[in-house]
Design a protein around this nucleic acid. Structure first.
Lengths: 243, 243
DNA sequence: CGCCTACTTGACTTACTTCAAAAACAGTGG
DNA sequence: CCACTGTTTTTGAAGTAAGTCAAGTAGGCG
């Protein structure tokens, strides 16, 4: 089985039951793989994509570009995610997707996916479910950036990313690759870079985590989850425990 | 044709082509209608809904309840919207939905919808598309609440609501019903009530809109759209012009 | 009339932004 | 191997926008 298929199946299985027939259907999908450099755009605002991106490795971010020039990151995505799945049913991109660190992407033609969804509705439902979880993550981001003070806000983002990374088997011990810059962290959390830095130090000394050299190390999950007032319900994972 | 069916079809048609067979399928759906009082919860965080809500009239809001007790509104919904469509494929509600002003809701059993989607994949795709537009609205809310200063932030929300209301034929001239309180506005935009009030006055004097007695009047669309730096791309409406 | 909720206003405080500059680090080429 | 450039991170100081607090007004309803 090809890597693309394996990763897609693995990702769908985190939230859905996938039947043998669905797997067969997935195995028929073709894809084109391409590598992207850090900071390189994968899709831009206004584009009309004809293929869906599946992240095979690395990390990507979705962002809005404001007419003031400032950038707002909406979400970050890890191996297995389909960061532009909305393109399946919405013509024009209302946001952009770029590589954070270097990323490998498989592009699967929309036409093939549409056909598969018609043949195997359950497969469509599984992908639909993924897009709904994306939406849940956006909602949480609204709340996080609007209602939580800097320390809790940053801790919450770290919790989410660690949790998702762990669910996808991307953590080694209590750490995982998080190749974002402080500027990007600020653009995601809606805070100035100076605040990002100081908050990071606070998390280091009292928040239970350490962000260093593009790696996040969770020194105390309980402390971090508590600081970020993190409740993973919104991630809708089958296995919700973490320790 | 029943009101429920008519409203559902009308709403789906804003973004999708609906075939005669799809309409037949919709006409088979049963529903239970119920009225909700202002501020009454329709679904709560943690609930496991078995039917999807379709808003027949009035306005509802989705919100998160934080363990600090504070409330964060994520989005507002108008006639025709399905504010908990995520429940179709995600078991447990990660947020709540409540009536803003009084609202009439039709509940359509998930089982019937699932069956319809299997029989008519295109119908499923149309509803899927709606959930993707919801997601786009959430993304915009992230950006709005994180990256825009109070005046632009509030103007942007007003633009969005007016635009959506107009697309659904809910505006009379340049005004429409917006039965939110200042507190709720603050809980949506992530600002303190005092700021909400002062910003509201600023919008009145220089922003091109007037919010009074549960009604929003757009005195100058150009001014308002400019103040909110509003670009309706993310609403993915067929007809994008407004004047 | 009195109660409750929603809105308004003013004064004070502070947490965060902005600005500025330095230190650390990575990559490049001599 | 070491200067040179550019980027990222760090730190400090100053300014301010928005939050908090508190009190008062207005409107709706029993």
């Amino acid at each position: 089985m090809e890597l693309t298929h394996k990763i897609l199946i693995g990702n769908l299985r985190e939230h859905s039951r996938i039947a043998a027939e669905d797997i067969e259907q997935i195995a028929n999908l073709t894809s084109v793989v391409r590598q992207f450099e850090p900071n390189e755009d994968i899709i831009r605002q206004g584009d009309i994509p004809k293929a869906a991106a599946l992240l095979l490795s690395g990390m990507v971010g979705r962002y809005h570009l404001l007419n003031t020039g400032q950038r707002q990151y909406i979400s970050f995505h890890l191996t297995g995610d389909m960061p532009d799945s909305q393109g399946l049913f919405l013509e024009k991109m209302d946001h952009a997707v770029c590589a954070i660190g270097s990323a490998v992407i498989a592009f699967i033609p929309h036409s093939e996916l549409h056909k598969s969804f018609k043949l195997r509705p359950q497969l469509g439902f599984a992908v639909w479910r993924e897009t709904l979880i994306d939406a849940a993550i956006f909602r949480e981001a609204v709340t996080n950036n609007s209602a939580r003070p800097p320390l809790a806000r940053m801790a919450h983002l770290f919790c989410e990313l660690f949790y998702r990374a762990r669910a996808s088997g991307l953590t080694r011990q209590n750490r995982f690759a998080l190749p974002v810059t402080l500027v990007q962290l600020g653009e995601a959390l809606g805070m100035a870079i100076a605040t990002v830095n100081r908050t990071l130090q606070q998390i280091r000394t009292e928040g239970g985590a350490d962000f260093l050299d593009g790696e996040l190390t969770v020194k105390s999950w309980d402390k971090l989850a508590n600081t970020g007032r993190f409740d993973p319900l919104y991630l809708h994972l089958r296995n919700r425990s973490l320790r």
